[in-house]
């Protein structure tokens, strides 16, 4: 009971917080919608667990809680994949900047010090 109550409160807090961030132009609308949907599902599971059990059985999983864990694992794997792409892109951008600085400074160096 207390766990459900805590989950609902945390979900509401998170949704409100995300909306505030959107109004402060810190996150895009797509992020607010996705995040709100995820936490609304969380509230749904807490309030009407039978509904989620029926949904789980409809897709071939015995319990709603199990389905939730599977979905969470898949979601985390996807987030990890996106972060890998983002990290690699950032690293390539950093290298590109470092490279351009080196080449720009090297042009002067080539004229002054380089021997043929």
């Amino acid at each position: 009971m207390w766990f459900k109550f805590g989950l609902i409160l945390f979900a509401i807090y998170t949704i409100v917080n995300t909306f505030n961030q959107y109004h402060a132009k810190k996150v895009p609308k797509s992020w607010v919608i996705t995040y709100a949907l995820i936490w609304l599902v969380g509230i749904g599971v807490a309030v009407i667990p039978d509904w989620f059990d029926r949904l789980a059985q409809a897709v071939g999983v015995e319990r709603g809680a199990d389905l939730l864990v599977y979905l969470a694992v898949l979601g985390l794997l996807y987030i990890n994949y996106r972060l890998m792409i983002r990290t690699r892109t950032l690293e390539q951008e950093i290298t590109a900047i470092v490279r351009e600085i080196a080449i720009a400074e090297g042009q002067w160096d080539a004229g002054k010090y380089g021997r043929n």
């Binding site: 470092v98 080196a102 090297g106 160096d109």
Partner: peptide, 16 residues
């Protein structure tokens, strides 16, 4: 020693 030197301001690795 007579080389043209390009300097990476931070370490980016041998491939870079």
């Amino acid at each position: 020693a007579g080389a043209v030197v390009l300097r990476h301001v931070i370490n980016r690795g041998q491939g870079a």
